[in-house]
Structure formats: C-alpha cells, structure tokens
Amino acid sequence: MLNEKIHTGPVETPKTVQETAPVVELPVQYPKSESNAQDIVKVVNLSKQFDGIEVLRDINLTIKKGDVVSILGSSGSGKSTLLRCMNWLEQPERGSIHLGDERIGINPATRKPLKYKELAKIRERIGMVFQSFNLWPHLTVLRNVMEALLHVKKMPKVEAEKIARAQLEKVGMSHKLDSYPSMLSGGQKQRVAIARALAMEPEVLLFDEPTSALDPELVDEVLTVMQSLSKEGYTMVVVTHEMEFARNVSSQVVFLEKGILIEKCPPEKFFTHPDSPRVRQFLKLDGA
C-alpha cells in the first residue's frame, strides 16, 4: 500500500525520489512483514537433491515458539535431511529456511552462500542432538559441555563451568562430570549431548533420531529428559521413530514420504484420523 502511494504520487524533485527509494526496496529484501514474531523456524519451498535424486520436494513448514514437532516417516523419506538442512549441515538447492528474521545459509541481499563465520553465528542459536551422540572423546563430560561456551561464546572459564554443571544437573549427569565419553552408556552419552546443546541457550533444538542408537532399556531415560524440556517450553524439532513420544509430547506431527510432506497436524488427529491414506497405512489404522 505504501509502495503504491509512492509510485503513483507526483514526482516533484529528483531529491525526493532518492530519499524514498530505500523505503521502496526494503520489503523486497527483508520479508519481515510476512513472518510472525512467534515463528522460530520457517521452511519455505525447500528442495534438496543427492546426485540427481530428489530427497526433499517443496517442503513448507513453520515452527512456532514452544512447538515440539515430531517428524515421522519411513527410512529414506528425507526426514533427517530436512532436519540437517535446518542448520545447514546439508545445503538445499531450492527454497529457504529462516531462523526468526534471519535467513539460514544464504545472504538474502546478495543471494550468495554465507561465509563460514556468519553461518557459525546462526548455528550458535540452533542446538543439535545426533543419533550417534557425537561427543568429543578427548574431553571429559564437563569439558564437552563447556567447550563451545569457552571457544564459541568466549565465556570466562568460571562462568562456563557454572552453566555446564547446571545443565548436566538438569539431565541427571552430575555424578559423571570427570568421566570420559568412552566410559558412559549410550543413554548417558545422549544426555550429555543434550546438556551440551542446552548450554548454548539455543532458540530451537534439533534432535536427529536421538534414541535410535540406544538399547531399548536406555531409550526412556533420554525421552524423559526430552519430555521435561518440552514442558519447560523449549522449541524442539524431533526426527524419531518413537510413536509414543510423538503422540504424547509433540504439539505437531509431520509425516514425510519420499521427500514430500504429506501430513502435518496435531498428534490427536494424526494418530486417530489422519487425512492421508499413506499415514493410515503407516500407522496400520485400517486394520488387516
């Protein structure tokens, strides 16, 4: 509306035109006006290929503050790839991903890839928990959690240690501060990995099949921690095969099939009367 007025209004002097020019361009460069303040992550028309095979097709997904989104789908459906695109561990060919008002991976003004350092700045705000834990084996539990605080946030040691101890307490790992990752069980490792992600105070937490590498007995201790995080209001995106978790903890369930998002709804609907026949089949809802 504003733009129209400027364009249709009488052009008086070249000076006025110059002054108004930046105002005209602003909405084009920064699509702030479209995004809701509550939207933490926004995925728009995302497509990704691996060697010519499309693994993600035109994905659209908005994640609001406090949302716990479970991404379900059979193996190879592209769910992990979608999650990894969200912090640019994988680079999509088309579409865009936004964290708050910032675009991830691409400079919106120049349309060129972000420099590694600029990317790192955004990644600081996104926590990630991996299937295979990916703890640093040469560091103790406490140091694993402190490391990014010290060397990414450049925090003083005393402060970093305080935060690390508090986060490890939260995940129930205070008794293992001086252990090395090789001495821990899978469930313990994953809880340390969660503490490591939490310590950075991320705006969103990404979980890439956090319980898939665990013994069935150890799954619960990790899920319990994740459930308590959701109660604290953390925004979480969880790629998982744990149906119980998706059903009881998440606020949205997303189903991917061959790289296409075919269902997105609250868990109550997803697990009882989903729209897609494929989801009904996946959940064996139709019997037989």
Binding site: R123, A148, V152, R196
Partner: peptide, 8 residues
C-alpha cells in the same frame, strides 16, 4: 557436532 555448535 563442532560445526553445529558454531565452532569456527
């Protein structure tokens, strides 16, 4: 993991 934590 280091990359995801924002390490340079």
């Amino acid at each position: 993991a280091a990359q995801a934590c924002g390490f340079s």
